[in-house]
Design a protein around this nucleic acid. Structure first.
Lengths: 180, 180
DNA sequence: CTTAACCTTGACGTGAACGTGAAGGTTAGA
DNA sequence: TCTAACCTTCACGTTCACGTCAAGGTTAAG
């Protein structure tokens, strides 16, 4: 479809990889073309390479990155500005990677690895903080549930499981919908 | 201070609690007055009682609720519309609670408890889903860290075994006219 | 060469979630 | 009673995160 095959391009920049046009990237990531361009505009994505006609060519790495950004936004609820900060770290990480690959010097490589580790760990820490807060919320709900269960057991048992479905509780009944 | 003491109110709805004016609520929750009114407008908060001069009087429960809403938004990244759905469940829960307390009938009480349980469980499920997704993200970061650690250990004696599918990344070749 | 299906950059529109006055009423204290 | 500090309801403004044309260039195929 919109992958860029080697010889078809008049004189592209790089045509030996599975580079994608924006339409295909959009289809694969679920993001709209507008959104993708917007993310690039905000610096959430490194400027992709272009064909000589200025069509954007997205590397697999770019696509992965877009997925990361989308998830950050959806899962962590971060603003795009916050995500950019995180992702700028990612930039550095790739920079480190290329520096790593550019040398044979083991000590330099170790240094780069160490820096990449530090970076990734700080990203992880960010996620962990969110996680902890959500776990807290989860525990509150669980203790509430436990309280209900306790009350249920303490309530003297009668034989009736009859349905008295009148009154304003109909909403609650409706609220208990089926699960998938 | 903006707490409302009992006798000062001309003829409010309920004046035996530590009811607060919006300014104080704002100070305690960190939300602006505008935001609080907006949340009420959206139905995220039950309409608070009023003084005879129409000043809003927030119950401690209202304040708690505002805190919950704020956390939902911040932590889960939900839209206010989504939060309203969750919080409507909370409304029902309180309704159930008052109905529970209004009866001595054990079977009715069990029924109410059952409904409250169902409701809270569905809320918990929502939180759990988010949690699971974030854990996934966390694990990715951790595996990345693990990879770095592995590389670190392998580095002293080996050279360039690891190879991903990305080629050398060149920058855009023909200048886009609008680029800085 | 022609054409359809892509793509490009503007540029204006939109909904959500508030911010920011404006104009005026309420409350507590002197 | 008077006033400062609150509060009220409009109502328009703003930022974010895109949506949606519009006008025109590029690419692949016939």
């Amino acid at each position: 479809m919109q992958t860029v095959s080697s010889e078809k391009i008049a004189e592209p920049t790089t045509n030996d990889g599975p580079y994608l046009l924006i339409g295909e990237v959009s289809a694969r990531t679920g993001l709209t073309q507008r959104t993708i361009r917007y993310y690039e505009e905000l610096g959430l994505l490194p400027p992709p390479t272009r064909t000589h006609g200025d069509f954007r060519l997205f590397s697999p790495r770019d696509v992965t990155r877009l997925g990361q950004v989308a998830r950050m936004k959806k899962l962590l609820g971060f603003s795009l500005a916050e995500i950019r900060e995180i992702v700028e770290g990612e930039e550095v990480r790739e920079q480190l990677r290329s520096e790593y690959r550019a040398t044979e010097d083991a000590s330099v490589r170790l240094d780069k690895l160490e820096q990449a580790l530090t970076l990734t760990r700080s990203q992880l820490e960010l996620v962990d903080r969110k996680l902890a807060q959500i776990v807290e919320l989860k525990m509150e709900l669980e203790s509430r549930i436990a309280r209900y269960m306790r009350l249920k057991q303490e309530t003297p048992n009668t034989v009736a499981t009859e349905d008295s479905e009148d009154g304003p509780i109909r909403q609650a009944k409706r609220g208990a919908r089926n699960e998938g």
